[in-house]
Design a protein around this nucleic acid. Structure first.
Lengths: 203, 203
DNA sequence: TGTACATCAGTGAACGCGCGTTCACTGATGTAC
DNA sequence: TGTACATCAGTGAACGCGCGTTCACTGATGTAC
């Protein structure tokens, strides 16, 4: 008389597996996304995942895409929230917020951040297209040119400079020697780093 | 009548194990430093290492120290090779060479670079002391203050700005989206990144 | 100079673990007639 | 409206792998007397 708690057919397994894998990635990073554990948490036998993904790498790729999308959204939200009237000041602040959002995400979600940049084998379309976090950054930089803050001849390579700086800062903070620095000091350091980039590009 | 090719006592096993582990790290990174493989390559039973190291982590720490030392040496050599008479120009070029050496090392030795920053649990003394790559960078920055190129009030945080930038550039190149960019273009991008830092600090 | 003995630095076998993946199978669902 | 059947989406068992670590043991070395 006990009701069948679990029907034989799950009916919605694929998205559940991805969600579960994302949760696992959040807490343990790429190596923690273990097929058997994902299945366990989804309450399904350990090989059921093979009905929906070729192999572990395919699942990880999907998780990585999700992580990238989350990072992009976090950046865009912070950019959109900038409320400054003066066009030049607004564009400059938007660039700073881009950087802060990037680092914030890495600190808040170290597992997802690591997964986002753990390319199993996938191509990296970000540089060619305007998609993803890289696209967001480029849009903000274009804006800086439009308002006259960034000289057009300095526009080339500016994306890489910005990206390298915040990415390095994030890495040093999440996995490196800056991890042990108090967060108040870290925030100050990030501001000074952003200031150097600002002056380097537009000063 | 076959001569004993391997004496029972190796006599020199500890350094050989470290050397072997470093070689393994070079080609495969931190995860490749597998105790059993290290022993195999050293021609010794897989548990002989326990006479010299508490566990795998202890061996890895030693490898990490070696990697850091190699990175530091590579940086110092490039810095010392700068032959420019004008003090300000020399100091500026030394800073650039510091960055180039850092990125070069990461590209040439991705395995060691990864191991150097994979802290198993060890403390990070680099920030407090003047030792290691971080110390080398700080010495060069002090030099820039001495010759009057870097304003003293901008000295604080300059180390983190420089480090974050080259570290991020290295990461994006070794593990990230810049990996697929032709190396000629990458070199140009690195120069433009270094230029941004230079202007940001001293412009 | 010789010998007993402690210590050092190796050995092979085994434990326990967990993984990705494949196999043959089965219950549930949907569709053609 | 009912039924045969193909297909879908699960299942449990097993394979093969390799790891870190521990155990009891042994050959070699060094030292005290």
């Amino acid at each position: 008389m006990t009701p069948r708690t679990q029907p034989y057919h799950h009916g919605n397994l694929r998205p559940v597996l991805v969600d579960t894998a994302v949760e696992l990635a959040r807490s343990t990073g790429p190596d923690g996304v273990v097929l058997r554990e994902v299945a366990r948490r989804a309450g399904v036998s350990h090989n059921a995942a093979y009905r929906h993904f070729d192999d572990r790498a395919a699942l990880l790729t999907e998780v990585s895409d999700r992580a990238m999308a989350q990072l992009e959204r976090a950046m865009q939200e912070r950019i959109d929230a900038v409320a400054i009237d003066d066009p030049a000041a607004r564009a400059a602040e938007r660039l700073r917020e881009t950087g802060r959002a990037y680092v914030d995400f890495a600190v808040r979600e170290p597992g997802l951040f690591a997964v986002a940049f753990s390319s199993p084998a996938g191509p990296e379309p970000d540089l060619a297209t305007r998609a993803g976090p890289y696209g967001v950054l480029n849009t903000v930089l274009d804006e800086l040119v439009e308002v006259g803050s960034l000289a057009p001849e300095r526009r080339q390579g500016a994306d890489v400079s910005c990206w390298a700086t915040v990415h390095g800062y994030a890495e040093l903070t999440v996995n490196g020697p800056l991890a042990e620095v108090p967060s108040v000091v870290r925030d100050q350091l990030l501001e000074s780093v952003l200031e150097v980039v600002h002056r380097g590009l537009m000063g």
